[in-house]
Design a protein around this nucleic acid. Structure first.
Length: 303
DNA sequence: TACCAGGAGAGCG
DNA sequence: CGCTCTCATGGT
């Protein structure tokens, strides 16, 4: 019989729901109360009530630094939000999900997850990763009555697989990318060095991996290594930035990168996450240049 | 049916 | 550089 350890953490200004469902981590599932997932090979259940986050786990936690780090509980969100540009779109995005946070994830899991993310919807990324962990992860201890859950397969485990085996997880053309990158990680590429480098060098290291371009590199830099100025531009952000700053004009990607570098401040990546969550969960918010009925972004604070 | 999804890489001028 | 095409799969 396993005992459940739990602890509560004061978490004012922390929107657990938005954070765990905002497309930065893909293994959190909503349970009866709260969310169940894995942090560092431990089963974890999180719930939030009255500005307090309750965490439950099975192992004797010792100190809870691993959880505080993962959830970034000690981050001063107010200072970050105040650093955002004074733009109506930013105000709308922040007020739409005040308390949205950036997690600090395991680099390998984050890298592998985003290699699997390309041209997939978030729900499907979750499905692919669920298949990958079910087939090739290791079962973790869970409380009685809770559904089984596996670890995320190590790079060594993935590197030892074959491309057809990976394709069984429905990842399609991403399979050879994941396989080749896992083999790099287990041979000549040290992921830990990425976190020790400056942003441009760190980005260059990641981009050298198979299946990793600028966008996926920036996701890993932001969500796993905490580079605050990494600013992944996906299709949603591309549409948003074009409509906000270059209405009905085609803009080359390098110019957008220069724009966000100079315009979004020292926590640009955080601003990006607010914009992403806003446009994704509130698609009518941004004016559509081809629709004459489109309204300015600032007129849609919240439903 | 046609189009889209937290893209990357290769081929082309 | 900047453009276009392909890659695999599931959902509207």
């Amino acid at each position: 019989m396993r005992e459940i350890f739990h602890r509560t953490f004061p978490a004012p200004d922390y929107d657990l729901e938005a954070t765990l469902s905002s497309g930065q981590a893909f293994r959190w599932t909503r349970q009866s109360p709260g969310w169940t997932g894995v942090i560092g090979n431990r089963w974890v259940r999180l719930s939030s009530e009255n500005a307090v986050i309750k965490a439950e786990t099975l192992e004797i936690p010792g100190d809870w630094g691993w959880l505080i780090d993962y959830l970034q509980l000690e981050v001063d969100l107010g200072a970050i939000v105040r650093s955002f540009p004074n733009h109506p779109a930013m105000h709308a995005a922040v007020s739409h999900a005040r308390g949205l946070r950036l997690l600090r994830q395991d680099p390998w899991e984050c890298l592998a997850s985003f290699i699997l993310s390309s041209t997939k919807q978030i729900v499907q990324i979750q499905q692919i990763i669920a298949l990958l962990t079910q087939r090739y992860g290791v079962p973790l201890a869970v409380p009685e009555g809770c559904p089984p859950i596996n670890s995320f397969p190590t790079p060594e485990r993935v590197a030892a697989l074959t491309e057809p085996e990976l394709r069984e997880c429905k990842m399609g053309f991403r399979a050879p990318y994941l396989l080749a990158t896992a083999r790099r990680i287990t041979t000549d590429f040290d992921l830990a060095q990425v976190g020790k480098a400056e942003l441009p060098a760190a980005r260059a290291m990641l981009v050298s991996l198979p299946g990793v371009g600028r966008k996926i590199a920036d996701c890993v830099l932001l969500f796993a290594f905490g580079f605050q100025k990494a600013f992944p531009i996906d299709v949603w952000l591309l549409k948003a930035l074009r409509q906000l700053f270059f209405p009905r004009r085609r803009v080359p990607m390098p110019r957008l990168h220069r724009l966000v570098e100079t315009h979004f401040g020292p926590h640009a990546g955080f601003a990006q996450q607010y914009l992403f969550h806003y446009v994704r969960t509130h698609p009518d918010a941004l004016p559509n240049p081809r629709a004459r009925t489109a309204k300015p972004l600032s007129r849609h604070p919240k439903p």
